[in-house]
Amino acid sequence: MSERNYRAAIVGTGGIAHAHAEALLGSGGRASLVAVADTDAGRAGDFAAKFGVARSYGGAEQLLREEELDVVHLCTPPQSHAPLAIACLEAGVTALVEKPPTLSLAEFDALIEAERRSTAHVATVLQHRFGAGAVRLRRLAAAGELGRPLLATCATQWYRDEDYYAVPWRGTWESEGGGPTMGHGIHQFDLLLSVLGPWSEVTAVAARRARSVDTEDVSMALVTFESGAAATVVNSVVSPRQTSELRFDYERGTVEVAHLYGYTDDDWTVTPAPGHDDLSALWAAGRAGGSSGHSGWLAAVLDALDQGEAPPVTAGDARRTMEFIAALYASAFTGERVRSGQITADSPFATRMDGTGTPWEKVRNP
């Protein structure tokens, strides 16, 4: 165990901040939650009292000015992620940013530039990469135990009603950056990308089928990878039977996980291909407890900081996922296949995820 104790703060004390606080309190003394901040000072005070935090502030500026911090957990609505992360980096404090990290690829590139100028780091909170099943799958794949990846399916089919979108910042391109592609399915397809590696091309559709929002409420994509594998990706907030599912078909077997908001090892199954029964034993040998929650992710962050390294998920890792999102939208709204690297700084889809505009907006404003 590291002898260092990292001084941490949380900015934004809404629902997801509770998971961050619990992870910090459960870190075994590796990190301490010393302060919180929220534009709603009363909510910040209530949150601080609940988790035994000594100090609360009415904003991040005062927090950064008055506290000596190692890391700040950014749990605010998406439109404030980039400016707050840049403020942390300029103060020499590592920023751990909830998903989506920025509203656009251009904003994310500005974040990368800020990191280059700083002694600190920025990392995106994509905790599903760090559950035991995902770690084991990547290890077995890298070791060649599964053979070549052939096919994958990735589905985030959730249900969010009109009351959910009554929160002012939800469902708009200006404040949330996108719909379920940006804010819901990102966990599953980020895990898909972390397993299958660099993607090559995306062909997609996105639509607004049922919710009175500016963004899409469903999207689907066909993705090819540099490895030769192909995958489908589905993102939805209109699906009454909610599920989060990933399936990977390799030469030597199929590996699957089905859950909702977080998985354990019990949620994974392995089906060996004929003649490869040893795969079941290989998988079982690595079984572990715990879930794909914030605690495992935080442990990986602290391990990296102990080694003087950038915490996971690094800016480079997250940029590949953000570029995938931009490519999906670009394909959906232009009707074209989009290749990796095609969305350059001068593309409208670099500055806004809706790029040249959505079909439904064009119908409303011909």
Rank of each mutant, 00 (worst) to 15 (best):
A132R: 04
G178K: 03
T153Q: 11
D163N: 14
T76P: 02
V97I: 07
E90V: 10
T102V: 05
T153S: 14
H184R: 15
L69S: 08
R138N: 14
W169A: 15
S175Q: 15
T94I: 00
V135N: 02
T181G: 14
F108G: 05
T124D: 03
E162H: 11
D70M: 02
I86G: 00
S175G: 11
S56I: 10
P83I: 09
F108N: 08
P78N: 06
T172L: 05
D161S: 09
A106K: 15
L64H: 06
E98H: 01
A134S: 10
D109G: 12
L63R: 11
L151P: 04
G133C: 05
R170W: 06
A87F: 04
L63E: 13
L111R: 11
L103Q: 08
L84I: 15
Q62S: 10
L103G: 03
G178M: 08
A87I: 10
T119Y: 12
V93R: 06
L150G: 12
V71F: 00
L126Y: 04
P100L: 10
L150P: 07
L64A: 05
D190Y: 12
V71E: 00
T124Y: 02
A166Y: 07
I186P: 12
G183L: 10
I86C: 04
A120E: 04
E162N: 08
L74A: 13
A60Q: 12
T172A: 08
V53A: 06
L69Y: 04
S175T: 15
L193D: 07
A110M: 02
S80N: 13
